[in-house]
Amino acid sequence: MKAIIRQELLALSRERLPLMLFTVFVSMISVSSLIGFLTKTTVSDVWIRTREAGLTSAPNPFASLSPLYYARNSIIYIILVGTLMAIIAGVSSALRDRKAATIDLILSRPTSRSAYIYGKLIGITIWLSLSLFLVGVIAAVVISIIFGAALPASDYARLAVFFLLALPLLSGFAVIGMFAGLLSKRETSALLLPISFWAFVTFVIPQIGTAARPVALLNPVPLPPTSGGPFGALNFFIGPFAVSEQFKVASGKILNDPDISGDFSKAIISILGFAVLTSFLISMVKRTSIRGVLSE
């Protein structure tokens, strides 16, 4: 299994598409803190001018906010860019050996099906961990610079937990990508199927449970679920499957976002359950399916 893990890391570090998405991911996370800073500066400027004009006596809305507020936009970048990066890594991993016609070389050696699949999965998870560690460090440094001082240790810990929580979410989507890559007969369907699944989980399920407000789904703050009525009943059952929304709830709570409402423990169970369920699913892929020939 070690050989497969090492090979996976080497391949991911050289393949163009995963690397391109990784670059976009790192860039977006890096600028997300800056966007938070610019938001604060702009709103504070407006507040100062409004107060000087005697139009308000309300306190500065940012005065009591945690510096972790600047990391708020990272949530949406993890959901939009990070998960896509994970899907592409999973698809690339599954297609690589079939495209290179090396799958028969691998399976004709004393390597078990589970060692092959889980070796790849562990390799991708390590790659995702390293990516999240890097963006976590960048986010911590940028926020400290914007804040003008080192953050309290508890804030660094919260930031670390936030990026750690992103790992099961991204791993789950990487497995979905691998699953599609292993079972598809065509490269295009191997890419389209997991992306359709991602769009369904991220945009369709939350809309069903939150009375259809699609634009709000691009906000880092999750929509409050509909209570009562048929939408409320529906949300009770399908809400946990909207892992992206659950990630927003859990991350918002971890980052001390005052606007977040929702059940933290339910959100954590949903994210971890997603990772465990997808890992279980991929373990059921048969040896003969792994050998399946790509028709393009």
Partner: peptide, 14 residues
Amino acid sequence: IGYLPENVQLYNNM
């Protein structure tokens, strides 16, 4: 056993 399939490509970027 050792095996060489028809049309083996190997990993191009390695």
